[in-house]
């Protein structure tokens, strides 16, 4: 039988394992190419396993916007990530994206303390921003792409930049502008510690949260058995995006990393869980 308690407690371990595997994978690709083994090629923009082609859906959107035509092999290549997002939500961000992995590595306790002192933050309960904030940035990015005619998504897609720079650094092509863009955004995020990029700007995550049905996996909050409501909020405190799993408007922001569920399990409260079908709220 499926042991949900054990699963949720270990969820973070599985997730970290996949994250480390994903980074090792990005390092392995250029090494294999240096060894002249060219079966698995590509980066986070698009990757090929033998004849199987996978394309980041945000790149598909960009190509359609820029070239104004529907290239069928491209649409087919984007099907696998889209299906994954349809079933599990934005799990690409929380399980595979190297940018998220790096930022989670830099979630240091002493850094948080300094940030809180420096920016004079008093911890209140998190407030979920309204969904339209998310879509406004996404639509703005698409409009800039359309009007100026530049591949903007390519330039600011963090997983893509990181993977292509890993390739360039190992093969010895030299690192360039991409590293500067990544460095600026990354430093800003580590210093501020707010995850604005993942939360509001990133076009990769935004495209993935476009596809969503009521059967998509989401975090469910059972109010009846939640009993640390007024005192503390372990779930919200552990959320990397500073969201509040108890409130509505959790989506499109939440990327289903499951850290809040794990904390909820550990405190002995089982109010949070992953659900595939929406329960009717009273």
């Amino acid at each position: 039988m499926f042991n949900s308690e054990k699963f949720y407690r270990n969820l973070n371990k599985y997730r970290k394992a996949v994250q480390i595997f994903s980074i090792l994978f990005l390092i392995a690709i250029p090494i294999l190419i240096l060894l002249d083994i060219r079966y698995i090629i590509g980066n986070m923009y698009s990757i090929s396993f033998w004849d199987l082609n996978i394309v980041d859906p945000s790149m598909m959107v960009q190509t359609i916007v820029l070239s104004k035509e529907f290239y069928v092999p491209l649409l087919i290549a984007a099907l696998i990530p889209i299906t994954l997002a349809l079933i599990f939500g934005k799990v690409f961000c929380s399980w595979m994206c190297p940018y998220n992995t790096l930022l989670e590595l830099f979630e240091l306790r002493w850094l948080k303390k300094i940030q809180r002192k420096f920016f004079n933050i008093k911890r209140k309960s998190n407030i979920n921003p309204k969904p339209y904030v998310y879509w406004i940035t996404y639509i703005t990015l698409i409009l800039i792409t359309l009007i100026v005619g530049i591949p903007l998504f390519t330039w600011i897609s963090m997983p893509g930049i990181i993977s292509s720079e890993i390739f360039a650094a190992i093969v010895g092509l030299g690192i360039g502008v991409n590293t500067v863009i990544f460095g600026v955004v990354f430093l800003f995020e580590v210093i501020i510690g707010k995850r604005y990029w993942c939360k509001y700007i990133c076009p990769v995550g935004a495209t993935l949260s476009l596809v969503k049905t009521k059967y998509t996996m989401h975090i469910n909050h059972n109010e009846d058995i939640c009993n640390c409501a007024a005192k503390a909020e372990p779930c919200g405190n552990d959320c990397p995006l500073e969201l509040n799993p108890k409130e509505k408007n959790l989506y499109p922001y939440c990327f289903n990393c499951g850290r809040c569920i794990k904390v909820c399990e550990v405190t002995g409260n089982k109010a949070l869980s992953f659900l595939f079908v929406k329960k009717n709220k009273k």
Binding site: G42, Y45, I47, L66, S67, P151, S164
Partner: peptide, 9 residues
């Protein structure tokens, strides 16, 4: 330039 996504493949 419109179509290339710099996937480096």
């Amino acid at each position: 330039l419109n179509k290339c996504i710099q996937c480096n493949k």
